[in-house]
Write a protein that binds this DNA or RNA. Structure first.
Lengths: 140, 140
DNA sequence: TTATAAATGCAACTATGTTGCGCAACTTAG
DNA sequence: CTAAGTTGCGCAACATAGTTGCATTTATAA
């Protein structure tokens, strides 16, 4: 797995550092978008500087190894693209945000609708965030 | 028009204050979602305290006179519901966010798709924000 | 192994938004 | 009309997410 992740960094033309590996590893196993806060509060990552984490997330996202989604609390969440052949994920799906536990999850079955751009405008990306209360929180 | 707006406040059970009237008036004439910053930089509003504006926006939104949308910059935008009989708007449409001029606009023709909620979850609201570059900014 | 380019750590800063509290203004009961 | 209660406003302080500049360290290529 780590080998796999190192290869990802390599393919992206990025240096392999412990921080990047750990973050990619974490996000990959979590399989849901995590905020900077959620990431840095992990034991394996808390030793790194805040700024370093921000920069790692930005870097990984720029080369396409992560995608990011804005929660209804105004905080960005980061999620790995799946990179197996079977399950490829460009982040191009709907996300659910629970305002009780502040956790975001993916709804990969439902993809985003086609959007007719405003006249003369160029569309770069689109985000559909569904805000509500997750099953866990509904049952306390 | 002002009469109309006063009536709105009245119907909502809110006191009629100059600040609320002015903000409602502004948002109504703009017809696109404005950020706190865009609102307070208007001459007619800049005399009010930051916090007062935040509170007015929150209040108006709670009673349903405004709806709010999060831009791709993490900043909330506020927009009046249309209240004429002909054009009613619950904010239930797609929004476009230009990352050049940071302006948000409504795409009222296109409504949000039906979403199948995650198992056991309760959906409260949904926001589809399309991020790109508007016609104006594309032509410099 | 060493030079260099990139990554990290640290401090300071910016911006959005919130909270607490005193005062002012409006509303309503008498 | 006045007093009392409620609501809104202004100010100061705070909280949190995210950014920038610069010195130091580390990964990589020669």
């Amino acid at each position: 797995m780590i080998g796999n992740i190192n290869q990802l960094l390599d393919n992206a033309g990025l240096r392999k550092t412990k921080g990047r590996e750990t973050i990619l590893q974490l996000l990959h196993t979590q399989n849901r978008p995590l905020s900077h806060q959620e990431i840095i509060s992990r034991k394996s990552i808390s030793k790194y500087d805040r700024v370093t984490i921000y920069r790692i997330l930005e870097t990984l996202q720029k080369v396409g190894l992560l995608h990011k989604i804005l929660g209804s609390d105004g905080v960005w969440r980061f999620c790995t693209h799946k990179y197996t052949k079977r399950k490829k994920c460009g982040g191009n799906h709907i996300h659910f945000f629970c305002s009780e536990c502040n956790q975001m999850s993916c709804m990969p079955e439902q993809s985003l609708p086609w959007i007719n751009p405003p006249k003369g405008a160029k569309i770069i990306s689109k985000q559909l965030v569904v805000h509500g209360v997750c099953a866990n929180c509904l049952n306390f």
